[in-house]
Nucleic acid binder design. Structure first.
Lengths: 218, 218
DNA sequence: TAGATTGTTAATCGATTAACAATC
DNA sequence: TAGATTGTTAATCGATTAACAATC
């Protein structure tokens, strides 16, 4: 009996962490693991682990636990890692170059097809065998190449314009590093990486105790 | 009357977004805004906005709404942006360099003191006027300089070792870009940026509909 | 079989939304 | 004052945890 209900984002965001921990267990030749043991390592409750996994199927076995390799592979499939994705990066500045050079993504099945920038000083330079192309060629490129994921690494002022091109060319998933929110149709998925929001969260937490000490004093 | 209760992370993670939107309004010379108007722009409900802000104080005025500048500044203070932070980056690879070059952080009050790496080819090179130093000098440096935030951009195998040095030298906040979880004492805050988890979340969502189509077929 | 551990239901907890009295 | 909009309480919704029967 299949469940058609969409999975909550809270669950989805834990999946990559399961995958990472199971990969480590696998590399350490651990064959089986109970939700209780995994709980102690990963820091979620055993109950939550069982609930999470049961969203996708019955991967465990009573009295035994979970087979590490089988579960690792199942979660890999759930995450879509049995597939291959073509990506392009737009913006070859610091972050664009960092993402381009992160070879681990290639290993996971994310294949970088091309990099674009509008800066003449960068156009023509190679990053990992990819010549940086003029962003004016982006739309044409997307029309003649199938791209699954568009990666935006341009300044925030240009981000929406690039997103519009992506949408127009049928890209359904955008990985956005620009510090802004993108407007896209409902069928296009945007995953944001907002570094400065992460840093501000850190500075908030660093000051939190103090913040409320002052309040109490009032 | 001050509230001493800690704020939930759900609320905290929305604060930087409020700050960003208020900054934009300010730049567009918007003087006042109601929770309803802000709701339409930022995408949170008006009710949630009022609840969130009331965790920190009474910033609004009945019948008027919120003064944009005042609220912007208040949230800035809440986020700790009225203070100045010294940071160091360990790991001068792609991500380390990208973070070092992100000058916007400087503008927010995060001052980069030094960059470290263990690669002799990188040691001695300058990034934004900072000479990359040998990581063997890290501990000594931290003992003679006050550092608020340690930024980890080394491969995952070395990340815990660096975190241990940070903790030993009294650093209370770590911004971790290594794809691993760090073990630190309770009084040390870790903020993770796990790029590959973000990418896997994206690929999950790209495949979600399909995943459950298959399930139903069974 | 007995012990272990899952899958799953029920209970709890926390976060979001709705409603409205207070008040500018 | 009348209208608008907050601050805040109450209701709802969703996510996590606890409990335990099912079963390997």
């Amino acid at each position: 009996m299949g469940k058609k209900t969409m999975i909550s984002m809270a669950v989805v965001r834990r999946l990559p962490k399961y995958y990472r921990y199971l990969g480590e267990l696998l590399r350490n030749d651990v064959e089986r693991i109970s939700s209780k043991e995994l709980s102690e390592r990963i820091g979620f409750t055993a109950s939550q682990i069982r609930q999470d996994l049961n969203n996708f199927g019955d991967f465990g076995q009573q009295g035994y636990g979970y087979n590490v390799r089988a579960l690792y592979e199942e979660i890999g499939k759930i995450l879509g890692l049995n597939k291959h994705y073509n990506t392009v990066i737009v913006g070859a500045g610091n972050i664009g170059q960092a993402v381009a050079n992160y070879t681990n993504f290639e290993r996971l099945g994310f294949h970088l097809l091309a990099i674009f920038d509008r800066n003449p000083k960068l156009i023509g330079i190679s990053i990992r065998d990819k010549v940086i192309q003029d962003v004016d060629n982006l739309e044409e490129f997307l029309k003649s190449n199938h791209v699954d994921i568009g990666i935006i690494c341009v300044p925030k002022e240009q981000a929406q314009k690039i997103a519009d091109i992506f949408v127009r060319c049928g890209i359904k998933a955008i990985w956005n590093f620009a510090p802004t929110d993108l407007n896209v149709p409902d069928d296009v998925i945007v995953e944001n990486v907002h570094l400065s929001e992460s840093l501000l969260t850190l500075s908030y937490r660093l000051n939190e105790a103090e913040l409320f000490k002052e309040k109490i004093g009032r």
